[in-house]
């Protein structure tokens, strides 16, 4: 790939989303097999083996790559399913598997030496040394950085690592270091690491009260929404709480907001970022299509003329319309956010 081109990597929670991502200009799609082997283990989402083969055929037919995420940390009870998923990925001919677990990486490196390995964001690698560890030991070629580094830190890491770097470009924002967050299992028993689930739907209850609409997670009051307030899905990091002795109710961790790098795409390219990832395997095909289309246009503009790139107002508007909390941030890439 031309080093001056960033690959657009789009989410596919199912075949319809895969098709629409491919049709709207994705360079690559990422997907998962059903079950606890991936970090978006939601009911009704992801691929069975037959759909996987169809998806790969469709994507490859149009020159789009397919990456398979197997990015939970399989415990002994699902170890076999996880290694079988790696074997299936290799057999079906995916272009890369996205892993986080050291044991699974060893399995892939030993049994499928030709299978390209990417390090998942869940692998929590934030330094060149960490990335080079995965490269030297398992042959990892690309890594997705956790959403914790500033732009200048991303550039420093790229200078010293042998691994290609992919960053999140748009979508929901994890405020925690991915792969290092157990808030969900603390409240519900299920976490991204253990079950591929954050704030699982079976633990969510909405309760109408005199004070407003309560969102509870396994009984824990995450937020209370007054009439007219838009009520977001209750994840712990986006709830409102009391801090210390204070009586105010505040977003102690993070406001509901989305990450958008639309404004700094040329900076990411100059820093040496090789791929831009869109979050959202749990999103509808319509969302995926629209987000892919906007980012495709933006990336094409950046590639054509990075020095005079100006995001079009309608791109920002379209992305804003799809954002959580209807606001957007550069997240940790912008130091002041931290």
């Amino acid at each position: 790939m031309n080093p001056q081109r960033m690959e657009l990597v789009c989410p596919a929670g199912g075949l319809p989303a895969l098709r629409t991502a491919v049709d709207h200009g994705a360079d690559a799609v990422y997907l998962s097999l059903r079950g606890e082997t991936n970090a978006r283990n939601f009911p009704g989402l992801n691929f069975d083996r037959k759909a996987l083969a169809k998806g790969i055929a469709y994507a490859h037919g149009k020159g789009t790559k397919v990456y398979m995420a197997l990015n939970t940390y399989p415990q002994p009870d699902i170890w076999k399913a996880a290694t079988e998923a790696v074997d299936a990925a290799a057999a079906e001919g995916v272009d890369a598997v996205i892993l986080a677990d050291l044991g699974l990486m060893r399995h892939a490196a030993d049994n499928h030496p030709d299978l390209t390995l990417h390090l998942s964001v869940q692998g929590s690698a934030t330094t060149a040394e960490a990335l080079n560890f995965y490269h030297d030991r398992y042959g990892v070629r690309r890594a997705v950085l956790p959403r914790v580094l500033s732009l200048s830190q991303v550039a420093q890491v790229i200078e010293r690592t042998k691994v290609d770097i992919e960053v999140f470009g748009f979508g929901s924002l994890c405020v925690m270091v991915e792969g290092r967050c157990m808030l969900s299992s603390y409240a519900t028993g299920d976490s991204p690491n253990t079950k591929g689930a954050c704030s699982p739907a079976h633990s969510v209850r909405w309760i109408e009260t005199e004070r407003g609409r309560e969102a509870r997670l396994n009984g824990v009051l995450i937020d209370t929404f007054r009439e007219g307030e838009s009520a977001g899905y209750p994840v712990i990091c986006k709830g409102r709480y009391h801090v210390g002795d204070g009586q105010d109710t505040v977003y102690a961790i993070e406001e509901p907001t989305s990450l958008s790098t639309l404004d700094i795409l040329p900076d990411l390219m100059k820093a040496g970022v090789k791929a831009i990832k869109l979050e959202g395997r749990q999103r509808s095909p319509a969302y995926v299509g629209k987000a892919t289309q906007v980012m495709r246009q933006a990336l094409d503009a950046v590639h054509a003329n990075p020095d005079n790139y100006k995001p079009k107002p309608e791109w920002a508007e379209q992305l804003a319309g799809m954002s959580e909390g209807r606001t957007q941030t550069l997240g940790a890439l912008h130091r002041a956010w931290q």
């Binding site: 677990d101 050291l102 044991g103 699974l104 060893r106 399995h107 929590s124 690491n193 253990t194």
Partner: peptide, 11 residues
């Protein structure tokens, strides 16, 4: 993140 015996062996 050490969640299985395969990872123990790697470590």
């Amino acid at each position: 993140n050490t969640y299985n015996a395969g990872t123990l062996k790697e470590l």
